[in-house]
Structures are given as C-alpha cells and as structure tokens.
Design a protein around this nucleic acid. Structure first.
Lengths: 145, 145
DNA sequence: ACAAATTCCGAGCGGAATGCTAAGATATTT
DNA sequence: AAATATCTTAGCATTCCGCTCGGAATTTGT
C-alpha cells in the first residue's frame, strides 16, 4: 500500500502553490527548494499536473505556476488521481477500465477491494487544499500560543 | 495506490483455505489451481503467511495448509500487513517506524496521509475471513434464487 | 536587439522491486 | 521405497522509480 513519490511530491507542490495562491506565478525552482525536491524531477511532475488542468503555467521571466482553481475546489483525490492514475488497490476494481476477470461475479475478494477503494476515494475526495490551508493556520496559531 | 500481487494472491489463498476450513490440510497445489495462481510462486507467498503465524503447515503426503485460527478471527488487515508490510501511503506515516522528517511537526500533507492510513487500516481490520464467507453464502444463495 | 529567466520536452540511466521459474533438500504417509 | 508434500534458496527477465541532463521555446526587462 505505497504511494510513489509522484503523488507524495505532487501534493507537496500543490499545497505550496496553495499557500501562495494570489501572489502571482511561482517559479518551480522556488517550490522545489521550499519543499526540498529536486527541481529537475519536479519539472516532470508538474507537467502532469498541468496536463490534468490543475495548474496553469506562465512562461518566460517572472513566470511560474498558479493553481488553476481556488484551493477550496481542488481535492487531494484529484491530485493523486492525476499523479498516480485511477484509485485501485487491485486492477480489477479500478475506478476506470477495470481489467476483465471471468470470476468477477463470484469473487469475494473483489468485494473487499471495492470497499477499500471506496473508502480511499472517500477520504481523499473529502479533503481540499483549502482544508489543508485551514489546518496549517490552526497549527501555526497553536504554535504561537 | 496499488497493492502488489503479494497481497492480492495472499488474500485469495487465505480465503480459499477459509472456505475449506475444517476439512484438514489443503495442499498448496490445490489452492493454486483453484485460484489460478502459479503454485511455484504461491509457495513463496504462503511461507510469509506461515511465518506471520496465519497458517499452519503439515508436511509430507496428505499434508498441506490450514488456517492457524478460525476464519472469524483473521482479518484482511492482518493478511495484508503480513504480505505487504505496515500500512502506509507514504513512509513518514508508517504504522511502525515512520521515517524521521525534520518538518514532521508542521507538515500538513502528513496529516492527510495519516487520515488516509487510518481509514485504510479501519476498513481492512473490520473485515474478517468469516465475514467474507458469509458474503459468499449470501451471494450463492442469491444466485440460486 | 540582447540577455536573463523561466517553462517545456524528450532522452537516458542506474538501481530496486516485481513476479516469476527452477531445482533440490526435507519430512511424512502409505 | 515410493509418492506426496512442504521448505529453502538462487536466479532472472521485465518493469518501474527517481532521477539527471541538455537543449529548445517563450517572455520580460535593459
């Protein structure tokens, strides 16, 4: 049950952009440095996020990346699906194009994986970048107190 | 968010043993054939389950494998942990020995992964092989009707 | 016009994990 | 003994992961 660094870094980068939402385009190098990720590598990852329509890019000097939508309307689930593909503990219960299996009708383990998948999707879809920003505020407030 | 075949096959094998619980030791070859898994490969996988104390083995002719406990007392979570290691979408929130991270205290994504991990564990721990047997009965009853 | 800053794109690559196969050693039953 | 199983280890092809690198294209500022 492991995520690859794609999803891990992808969420870090998106959250970083969320924290600076409204401040114009953020160069990738800045994000990479703040999140301690190789910027060469992050470049490839953000390309995926862009193609998925989750970030907008501005080329040239003073350019960078901006969230395509408000932080509150982008969920962790969307980001993870973009980076890691459809949610599916095993392929035969993939959210899209589950692989055929002639025993699917009476496969009990399949029921299990379906439940797992649904819970997974439920948690991830229920958390937005906006929620995370609020958590961050609460945390830093508690820290000061 | 993919399981390897280890967890997948592991659960299939355990469920097969559950379906024949009480009928004495089941040879691995039989399980492999019924579940359509390479028996050479399954041999390695079941060794892990045995070391985890989830199945007992009987060597020699007429030997095979038996669940170490009642189906109702063995959960999917146990099986998956045995086969795939501690549940953890990312390492820094692993159930055991989470890797150190100097930013752990104010890492918001970490909170997300913790929630994901907990939900994952919750579903898997809430389903036992006994539950699956009941589902199987219900399904075959519905099929006959 | 030119230089600097940036995104964009694709090639390549070492290492690790995955999913097996295979072969033999060991134990038990008949 | 012979047959039936588990047990153990080695190996191996393929794929994926997590990068690095080089350079082209685009925009801004001087």
């Amino acid at each position: 049950m492991h995520l690859s660094t794609r999803g891990h870094y992808g969420l870090l980068a998106m959250f970083d952009l969320a924290e600076h939402y409204g401040a114009g385009p953020i160069p990738l190098k800045t994000v990479a440095e703040r999140q301690n990720i190789s910027d060469n590598y992050l470049e490839q990852l953000i390309a995926v996020l862009r193609k998925a329509g989750l970030v907008r890019s501005v080329r040239g000097a003073q350019g960078g990346y901006i969230l395509a939508r408000e932080p509150g309307s982008i969920t962790v689930g969307e980001i993870i699906r973009a980076m890691e593909g459809p949610i599916a503990p095993v392929e035969c219960v993939s959210e899209v194009e589950p692989t055929e299996c002639d025993q699917a009708d009476f496969c009990i383990t399949r029921l299990v994986w379906t439940k797992v998948r649904d819970k997974l999707a439920e948690v991830m879809d229920s958390i937005s970048l906006g929620d995370m920003l609020r958590d961050a505020e609460r945390l830093s407030a508690a820290r000061k107190a």
